[in-house]
Amino acid sequence: MTSRFLFTSESVTDGHPDRLCDSISDAVVDRFLQKDPYSRIVAECALSKNVLFLAARFATQANIDIPQVARAVMGEVGYREQDFDAANCSVLTSLIAMPQEQRAQADERDLSPAELDRLTVHSQVSVFGYACRQTPELMPLPISMANRLANGLTRARQQRRLGYLSPDCTVQVGIEYHDNRPARVASITIVAGSVAGRPVDGAELRAHLLADVIQPLFADDPIQPDAASEIFVNPRGAFPKSGPGSHSGMTGRKTAADTYGAYARHSGSALSGKDPSRVDRVGAYMARYAAKNVVAAGLAEECEVQLSYAIGHAGPISVRVQSFGSGTIADADIGTRLREAFDFRLGAIIRDFDLRHLPARHRPGFYQQLPIRGHMGHADLPWERTDRADSLR
C-alpha cells in the first residue's frame, strides 16, 4: 500500500433495504435459538416495494411464526405507511424443515477435546480477520467513522431531533493517509431521504446534519473534519422517496460495511442469517478475535489472519498471518503463537463465544443487532475481547 492515499468506506442506516434484510434474517436466527439453542437455521430474504420474500431451512424443536418475526422487524424500523407499510406488505416464504437429527446433538460447553474433534464443518471457506492501530477499537478509521455517522443519523431520527429523516440513509467517509497513517478527514458524503410529505430544503438539511450529527459526533476525536474537508449532502438533489418503495434489498449485500469497510479482506460470504454451526459466519468472528489480540499484544501495528476450512475437518486446514511489514516478530512466528493460544475448531468457537445461548440473554435478540451496529469493533461482543494478548507476548 502506498504511503500517501485516500480511502473511503460506506455504511448505511437501519432502514436501508439491504440492511433491513440482514436484520430480518438475523432476527429469525435469534428467535430459533431463543426457543431451541440447538436449532440449525439458515435464513435469507429479498425486499422490494411491498413484497418480502423470505427463504429458510431449519431443524428445530421450536415453533416460530417466521412471517410475524419479519413484520416485527420491519415495523420497528419506523417507516410511515406512505413510504412502506410493514403491517400490510406481502410476506412470501419458502420454508424447508429438515429432520430433527440435524439439530445440534450436544452442548459444546460439555464436550471433551476428542468430542470437539468430531464436530466438523459443513462448508468450505476462507475467512479473514483484521485489526490495526487506527482507532481505540483497533478498526480501520474510515469504516469506524462511517458506522458511527450512520448510527448518529438513526439516533437523530429516533430522538426526533431530525424527525423528517427517512430510516434509509447512506454515508461515506474518506480518510487521507500519510505514511500509511490516518491524517485527516478528506470528505463526508450523506445521502439522506426524507419521509413522505416532509420535503426539506437542501441548505437546511445540510445545516441540521452539521449541527446535530457531524460536529457533535466527532468533536472529541483526534482526527475530525477540518475547514478543508468536503462535506456533501444529497449531492444529486433531494431524495423524496427512499427505502423499499424506491429500491430493493437482499441479505448479504453489505458485507464490506459489516466488516472492515473494504480496507481489509473479508470472505465475501454473508454473515447474517446463519446459526453458529456455519463456519463462514463464526470463523470470521474468530479470525477478527485472533487478529485483534495480535495487535493488542504489540506483535504488529496491523494484522490480517486467514483461516481456511474444508468439509469434514473440525478446525482450519491452514492459518496464515500477514502483518504487512509492521510485525515485531516474523509473521510465521505470530502464526505459531496463534495456533498455540487459540482453538480454531468450530466447536471450540461456539463454546468459547457461547454463541448458542447469547440470543436468550439479549432482548429482543443478539444477532439482530449486529447488522445495524456492525459485526466488528464493539467492545461488548465476545470476539472483541483482548484476553489472549498476554499469552501471545
Results as ranks from 00 to 15, higher is better:
M1S: 15
M1F: 13
L6W: 07
D14Y: 11
H16V: 08
P17K: 12
D30W: 07
F32H: 03
Y38I: 05
S39R: 03
V42I: 09
V42S: 08
C45S: 11
C45F: 05
S48Y: 14
V51M: 14
V51Y: 12
L54G: 00
T60D: 07
Q61Y: 07
A62M: 09
N63A: 13
V77M: 06
G78P: 08
F84N: 04
A87R: 12
V91N: 02
L92R: 10
L92E: 13
L95G: 05
A97I: 02
P113N: 12
A114N: 12
L116M: 15
L119N: 10
F128P: 00
G129S: 06
C132H: 05
Q134N: 14
Q134C: 13
P136I: 07
P136S: 14
M139L: 14
P140M: 12
N147A: 12
N147Q: 15
R148C: 11
A150T: 09
R155V: 14
A156G: 11
R157F: 04
L165D: 06
T170A: 14
H178A: 12
N180F: 04
S187H: 11
S194P: 01
G197D: 03
R198A: 13
D201G: 14
D201I: 11
G202P: 02
A203E: 15
E204G: 05
R206Y: 10
I214C: 05
I223V: 14
A227S: 14
S229D: 08
I231Q: 06
F232N: 14
V233R: 04
F239T: 11
G245D: 08
S246T: 12
S248F: 11
M250S: 13
K254D: 03
A256N: 10
A256F: 09
A256W: 08
Y260I: 10
Y260K: 03
G261S: 08
A262T: 04
A264T: 07
G273F: 09
G273C: 12
P276K: 03
S277Y: 01
V279A: 00
R281D: 09
G298L: 07
A300F: 06
A300R: 06
E304D: 09
S308Q: 00
P316C: 01
P316A: 01
S323L: 07
G327L: 07
A330K: 08
A330C: 03
L338R: 04
I349G: 01
I349F: 04
H357S: 13
P364L: 08
G374K: 02
H378P: 00
W383A: 02
W383R: 01
E384C: 06
D387M: 07
